[in-house]
Write a protein that binds this DNA or RNA. Structure first.
Lengths: 327, 327
DNA sequence: TTGTAAGCGTTATCAT
DNA sequence: ATGATAACGCTTACAA
């Protein structure tokens, strides 16, 4: 494969001149420029980017850490990231880590290795202090509140958003409230759990551990919850309302509940989370949490940080309740 | 930042020895090895991978071309790819191209540039001959039948699968059959369209262009189709059955149709495609097309090709009809 | 405007 | 078992 030296030789110029042409630098005469371009064309030459990366210390690539791509939440964030990266001519390395800390550390090591210019952490099993310890090697942006830690983040206030949703249910007269969540130990999941428990405590509402259900990942899990709740024939032994993390779970619950003749919201009110298309279809009242914008913003921040500004940035995104017909 | 030379100097050995330790080569005495490892630890050293990439001509990265990640189809394929890549210690560069040919060409150019070791094309706007022209730079695998073209592919037979589904509807006695599709010009979409039209022609069934509906991307589009069909008050002016590409579209159609009092499948039979969780939830009869396996297989092939075997490979995946309750 | 030459940080080759 | 030294292919002072 041809290299810059060969181009220089054949075009009858120096390698510097070829490099200048390659990088659109000024101070190249028209003659030489066309000579170089012609030779490049003739030999079907392209730069070996690894050499460029080595000498410049940059790669134009950013790694994205997330547990699994095949979920509404993460694929929307990824969409936002990808569109922003495309516009900025950056490459995104998708690192699906299944929340395995060793794999996540390998990705952060790529920053030390100079394989990438920055890391975006959408969701992680790593502790903030571990993440912070890698910021000396390059910019890191997380999609969870970094608190006092010295790295950038863009986030939605899950605590406030969730409480807001619960207030909404409360305002509609509901007092016996249940709660569905995905992984119990997800970092935003535990924030939501706190919001839920704090809310019940403050309002003096009944807290029934049976009504707090974890590991709801798929539509079918929501249906399972409906069946479990309906096992109790006594209506007053069931919640009047459910706060559900993930509209697809809410959809599963609603569809199964209706199969059993329950009226939504009369017999059971349902509040979703994430504002997914399926929620719109079923008329689920939900909380929009700007996932696409989160991806866009995260990339925007890392892009700024790569190009100089080294102070950690924190960006808080809005959420809003979308009133439909299930509450 | 420390480099290999400095490690060598401080550990009192040559750079070659350090390199040997780094790469777990034999023929290094225990003493020197520990000396090197200690110095590495002390100076918190890691290799600059760009130098490694330059000299070895490999990067351990593979690019993935797809139009948008935020869809069931692509995120499941991506999941399969990502799990396989993780297991093989490879990096995946996610190139969301929106079907813009220029962007897709840029990705293929990364192969010329030596930035990546291979390209996996899940779906593209590029013509097969264009893709073929890049195979001289490195392995390329597509998720569409490559036909006679000289590059590898792993695919499901959309034509056969779709016809099989249509036969199934026919077998259940349905004669007036409609069809919903995503982008009209997607490569597998046009194969499915051919299957549909060929089937109607061969069976001598009525072909009503009004019953062939494109651009159904989201759940809500399915609902819109239901409303459009119901506009016709004359039952015999409506299809008896719909073949629908994408269970989420089928879900939208079914939910909306039921709202209007239609019984599924009595008043309208619905056959889905993709075997999505929402289809399971709603009991949609559908066709499973092994998307996760497709991703896994695509990575497996590119991995083989990168490590030697240069003959194009073609792998055909099975599909199967999942009988539920909407037909 | 152009060219020479010194890096960038590795691995590979070939001695010893 | 170990080490000099030559690549790898580019950018960038610095000189002219």
């Amino acid at each position: 494969m041809a290299n810059i030296k060969e181009i220089a030789r054949i075009a009858g110029v120096s390698v510097t001149t070829v490099s200048r042409v390659l990088n659109n630098h000024p101070y190249v005469s028209k003659d030489k420029r066309t000579a170089v371009l012609q030779t490049i064309e003739q030999l079907n030459y392209t730069r070996n980017m690894n050499a460029v990366h080595l000498i410049t210390g940059r790669t134009g690539a950013v790694a994205v850490i997330l547990p699994y791509i095949n979920s509404f939440y993460f694929s929307v964030v990824m969409d936002g990231l990808a569109q922003a990266a495309l516009a900025a001519q950056y490459r995104l390395i998708l690192c699906q880590t299944n929340y395995v800390p060793e794999e996540e550390l390998k990705v952060l090591d790529m920053l030390r290795n100079k394989e990438i210019d920055g890391v975006i952490i959408v969701s992680t099993a790593l502790k903030p202090e571990v993440i912070e310890s890698f910021t000396i090697y390059g910019p890191v942006v997380t999609c969870q509140n970094s608190g006092e830690r010295q790295f950038s983040s863009v986030y939605i206030e899950h605590y406030a958003a969730f409480r807001h949703g619960l207030e909404y249910l409360y305002g509609k007269g509901h007092r016996r409230i249940g709660y569905c969540e995905g992984r119990q130990n997800g970092s935003s999941a535990s924030i939501r759990q706190n919001a839920f428990q704090d809310f019940l405590a403050e309002k003096g509402l009944l807290f029934d551990p049976e009504w707090m259900i974890f590991d709801c990942m798929r539509e079918e899990d929501g249906a399972e919850v409906a069946r479990r709740l309906l096992d109790n024939p006594d209506r007053s032994g069931r919640p009047e309302a459910m706060m559900i993390s993930g509209d697809h779970i809410a959809a599963g619950l609603i569809i199964e509940a209706r199969k059993h003749g329950l009226k939504i919201p009369e017999d059971l009110a349902v509040m979703g989370f994430d504002n997914q298309p399926i929620g719109r279809l079923l008329g689920i009242t939900t909380i929009d949490n700007q996932l696409y914008q989160m991806g866009e913003a995260a990339f925007g921040i890392i892009h700024e940080q790569i190009n100089g500004s080294s102070l950690p940035v924190t960006r808080k995104l809005d959420y809003r309740i979308i009133e439909r017909s299930t509450v």
